[in-house]
């Protein structure tokens, strides 16, 4: 089996479930050792680690709320002590409050910005030190809501826009250290979390097939992330790659279809 990431160490934040878990499994399938970070769902994280271990690579589970700078420090202290290096940081952990801009309060703003945007800054600062002299990859998971207005997505959209801007700055600042920094922005991804939020009416049901005929699934994102972690992507720097089955470039498609009926 082709294992281009054999011997590499990857930290995937928020990898107990959903997109993070799928990315962790994908990188493990390519030979990478994986640090599974989680915050609220220990059983899920341990299951991810078990599945990764079954692939014959090393894994470690670290609990840390990436919205809390002291917890980020604690996580990187463990990685520094146990491994002393890091090759890949996948900044995936995310949270947010589904409200319109007029209903966002300071608490919701800070919570979302801390986890979705500030965490990239603090994790990248610590990760880059562990990548010193060996290079590395940093890939963040963004969302179409950074560039387009989605219902009740105001603060999450803003946090993801900050994440994408920071990706550009980090890409340039870390380029001399051979650290590639990029992001992936997806349209709505078919995950258990999305189904739960819709069922509990915490967000409107925006699920719809892309022009391809289906929604984006976690495996689509994991494939793109794996590519960005490969040497073939070495000259891609500071970019946010959109993965949405063409949704964002065909905003009037549905209107046209309705008009033609």
């Amino acid at each position: 089996m082709n294992q281009p990431l054999k011997g590499k160490l990857a930290l995937v934040t928020g990898s107990g479930r959903g997109i993070g878990r799928t990315i962790a499994l994908k990188l493990a399938s390519q030979g990478a050792d994986i640090i599974v970070n989680f915050f609220r769902h220990r059983q899920a994280a341990e299951k991810t680690a078990e599945d990764i271990q079954a692939m014959g690579v090393k894994t470690k589970v670290i609990r840390a709320n990436v919205g809390d700078p002291t917890k980020i420090d604690g996580m990187f202290d463990i990685i520094g002590n146990d491994f002393g290096y890091l090759d890949i940081l996948i900044n995936n952990a995310a949270s947010g409050v589904g409200r319109s801009a007029m209903d966002v309060d300071v608490k919701a703003w800070d919570w979302t910005m801390d986890i979705n945007a500030k965490a990239l800054l603090l994790c990248a600062q610590r990760a880059s030190k562990l990548m010193e002299g060996r290079g590395g990859k940093i890939v963040s998971i963004s969302s179409l809501g950074a560039s387009f207005v989605l219902p009740t997505y105001a603060v999450v959209g803003v946090s993801k826009a900050a994440l994408e801007a920071l990706t550009r700055y980090l890409a340039i600042e870390l380029a001399p250290k051979s650290i590639c920094v990029n992001a992936v922005a997806a349209s709505a991804v078919e995950t258990e979390a999305l189904k739960f939020y819709i069922k509990e009416q915490l967000m409107p049901d925006t699920r719809q097939p892309t022009p391809v005929g289906r929604m984006v699934i976690p495996e689509d994102i994991a494939n793109l992330v794996a590519f960005l972690c490969s040497e073939e992507a070495f000259m891609i720097r500071g970019q946010t790659i959109i993965i949405d089955g063409g949704t964002s470039i065909a905003p009037f498609l549905a209107v046209r279809e309705e008009g033609s009926q």
């Binding site: 609220r40 220990r42 609990r63 915490l202």
Partner: peptide, 23 residues
């Protein structure tokens, strides 16, 4: 609301140095 709940759990975890998984 859902944010109040998560923040309450996290604050209690920090105060008592224990873990309260969502499960």
């Amino acid at each position: 609301d859902s944010l109040d709940i998560v923040q309450s759990l996290v604050a209690v975890e920090d105060a008592f140095d224990i873990e309260i998984p969502d499960e």
